[in-house]
Simulated scan of single mutants.
Amino acid sequence: NPRMTVGAIVGEPLQIHNIGDNKSRKERVQELLGLVGLNPYFVNRYPHEFSGGQRQRIGIARALAADEPISALDVSIQAQVVNLMDDLLVELGLTYLFIAHDLSMVRYISDRVAVMYLGRIVELSDRDEVFDHPLHPYTQALLSAIPIPDPEKEEKRQRLILEGDVPSPANPPKGCRFHPRCSYATDICKEDDPQFRDLKQNGDVDHWVACHHAENFV
């Protein structure tokens, strides 16, 4: 909110949940600003007085659930924000819910990865399991879009191109929500919603997927 000071923005969750009095909340806000590398005495400044990277730090101070915390930032600032999140993770023993479309960054920062389509989780497992052994066709298509830093391999590889438009989440298709865009779809996909089930591939590593034909990709 551009009309709120940074102190009010960061301290709003404390006020909503009636945590502490005004003095203790101000001290906590200053402490949080210091943790993310900002001057604690910036509490009376407004968002327009900060750079994009500084505003992202303010967002990190305000919440543990990070929704696109590195979007719209150049690479060097992205690295600073991610390193800051790593430091806070260790220092404070935090857990992040990291929501992003940058899959290379997801692989770098995450321990477990969930892939969503039209508001539903379609695949869930450890980071390396999802990236190295994807079982859902949507996950496979997403991963095929990640550039390979080798011009020869990039030129030769085949990308999975999704066809059709994304259906409305307010009126999803019957059966599997992904079937209108899936090249593996059969009649059962058009009628029955696939069960979210665990198909272990590597020892004790769980690998959850919602696809009628996931066994074909094991």
Rank of each mutant, 00 (worst) to 15 (best):
S125V: 12
I148V: 15
A145H: 11
D102Q: 09
D87L: 12
L162N: 04
V113A: 09
L94Y: 06
I148F: 01
E91K: 08
V81Y: 07
S104C: 06
P151H: 01
I188F: 09
F131K: 05
L162S: 03
A114R: 08
D86A: 13
Y138G: 03
V106G: 05
P137L: 04
L97P: 07
S183C: 09
V130M: 02
K174V: 15
R177N: 11
D132Q: 06
Y96F: 14
V166K: 10
V115F: 00
P169N: 00
Y117L: 10
R181C: 06
M116D: 02
F98N: 11
P134E: 09
D128W: 06
V166M: 05
C176W: 01
R177M: 12
I77T: 12
A100P: 00
F178Y: 07
I99M: 07
D111H: 14
E155W: 13
T186N: 11
L94V: 12
E152R: 13
L143Q: 01
M105Y: 01
V115E: 02
E123L: 05
A170M: 14
Y184T: 01
A114K: 06
D74C: 14
Q80F: 02
T139D: 00
L84F: 12
T95S: 15
L103E: 02
V82M: 12
V82K: 05
V113G: 04
T95I: 11
L88K: 09
G119S: 06
S125P: 08
R112M: 09
L160A: 03
Y138F: 13
R177C: 08
V130P: 00
L103D: 04
L135S: 08
E155H: 12
V82L: 15
R181A: 09
L124G: 07
V122S: 02
P134T: 11
R127F: 00
M105R: 09
Y108R: 14
V106T: 04
S125G: 15
P149I: 04
F98E: 10
C189W: 13
E155S: 14
I99D: 01
C182H: 03
Y117A: 07
R120G: 07
A100V: 05
L89G: 06
D132W: 03
P172H: 10
L94N: 04
D126C: 08
Y138I: 02
V81H: 11
R107L: 07
K174G: 00
E91P: 12
S110E: 02
N171F: 05
P172W: 10
Y117R: 10
D126Y: 13
A114Y: 07
I121Y: 05
V75M: 06
R112L: 05
L160S: 06
Q140M: 11
M105V: 15
L135G: 04
S183H: 13
Q78S: 10
S183Q: 11
K153L: 15
I188K: 13
I146K: 08
V166H: 02
V90H: 12
K174F: 03
S168A: 04
V115I: 10
